[in-house]
Amino acid sequence: MGVEQILDMDTIKQTIKQKLLIDRLKLEDITAEEITDDLILFGEGLGLDSVEAFEVMVGMEELYGVMVEQIPADELKIHLKNVQSIAELIMASQQKGTEGL
C-alpha cells in the first residue's frame, strides 16, 4: 500500500470533529473550530452520553474500519476521552492495519 493511504493526524482530527461528532450526532450550536482537541467529550465538556458513545464507535468503524468491539469498556473510555485520543486510536489502528503489507 502506498504512503498516501496513511492518513495524517490533522485530517483525522478534522474528520472526527465534523463528520463523527457534529454531523453524525447532529450537534447544534457548535462548530468544528469550537471543539478543541482536548475538550472532554462525555459527561462534562461536550456533554455526550453513553448512547452517543456507541454512535461514535459505529462511526469510527464506518469511516475508518476501526473495530473497538474487543477493547474492554474501561479502556475504551480512555480512548474516547477527547478528539486527540480518538485520533490516536484511529492512527494506531491504521498503522496496525498496514503493518506487514
Binding site: 450526532l25 448512547v51 452517543e52 456507541f54 454512535e55 459505529v58 468503524e61 464506518e62
Partner: peptide
C-alpha cells in the same frame, strides 16, 4: 442501508 452492524444507537431508542 448500511447493515445491521452499523445500526444507529441514537435513533434506536
Amino acid at each position: 442501508v448500511k447493515g445491521p452492524e452499523y445500526a444507529s444507537s441514537i435513533y434506536f431508542p
